[in-house]
Design a protein around this nucleic acid. Structure first.
Lengths: 137, 137
DNA sequence: ACACCTAGGTGCAATATGCATATAGCTAGC
DNA sequence: GCTAGCTATATGCATATTGCACCTAGGTGT
């Protein structure tokens, strides 16, 4: 059953709200640019981040107003688009964090309780548990 | 700036791994069917779940082997496809939970620390902070 | 017959995503 | 000067996901 290879890949390529949250998280307290963010996130071990998706996500976050950017030409090499959080971005992160905690609570409520479900639930037990046992019809 | 109306909607329509995790979470300890899950999730206040997406997600979770299903014709009304977690599904949830905790740690590391970033970071401070202050070229 | 509720499912346009590729600044070697 | 290679951003395109509207079908009440 499900070894490490065919086990469904969870969060291999962070996308959507997850990706946004990670990008914003990396911008907390300082600014950074796309290329740097891709590298730091890939090194962080949360998954393999796609360059194209990251660049597009950053532009979209800027359009949404969660970050803003300026060109940085002070260093050698190609110009860097430096992003920093806006107030809206900070609020977004706070919202996201609250949601994440709710999610964790929902998901962890049984697993944390010493997982009494190892044998998989019986369907008969379900009906009793929720008091719908009107199998008589 | 950014009132409750134009604030970017975070997690309004849970999708992807998030949706999968929520569905699996609702199946912990008992079985349930799609229609019921949509209702319970929508009442839970985590967002507005899309019927079509939920049904498709459930079928896909079954294909992946995280849940399995049987038809339940014991109750009145249309038959219900009852889902229950598989062992792989339980493992998935445990993995997801671990990832979620890492995410939370990443995202919350600065916000939790009394948010000293209310004024938004200065870009000059960044360079000093990361010791790249070679503005002289 | 008809309206209405439950329950699952599908078609399709719009959006999001992964991968490959393009553009461009700069450095090192010859 | 020319080429190769690294940094840095961006886009084209085929595929995958998603939201919404709609469909099928069983059952109940009038």
């Amino acid at each position: 059953m499900a070894n490490d290879n065919d086990r469904p890949a969870v969060g291999v390529h962070p996308t959507g709200d997850m990706l946004n949250a990670h990008l914003l998280a990396m911008l907390q307290g300082w600014s950074a640019y796309g290329y740097e963010l891709v590298q730091r996130l890939n090194e962080a071990g949360f998954g393999e981040y796609n360059k194209g998706s990251v660049y597009r996500a950053l532009r979209q976050l800027e359009q949404t107003g969660l970050v803003d950017s300026i060109w940085d030409t002070s260093t050698a090499g190609p110009a860097r688009r430096m992003y920093q959080l806006t107030q809206a971005g900070i609020l977004f992160l706070e919202n996201w964090l609250a949601l994440l905690d709710m999610h964790r609570a929902l998901i962890g409520q049984f697993i944390d309780a010493a997982a009494p479900l190892q044998g998989a639930p019986t369907r008969a037990a379900d009906r009793e548990r929720r008091g719908r046992g009107d199998g008589s019809r």
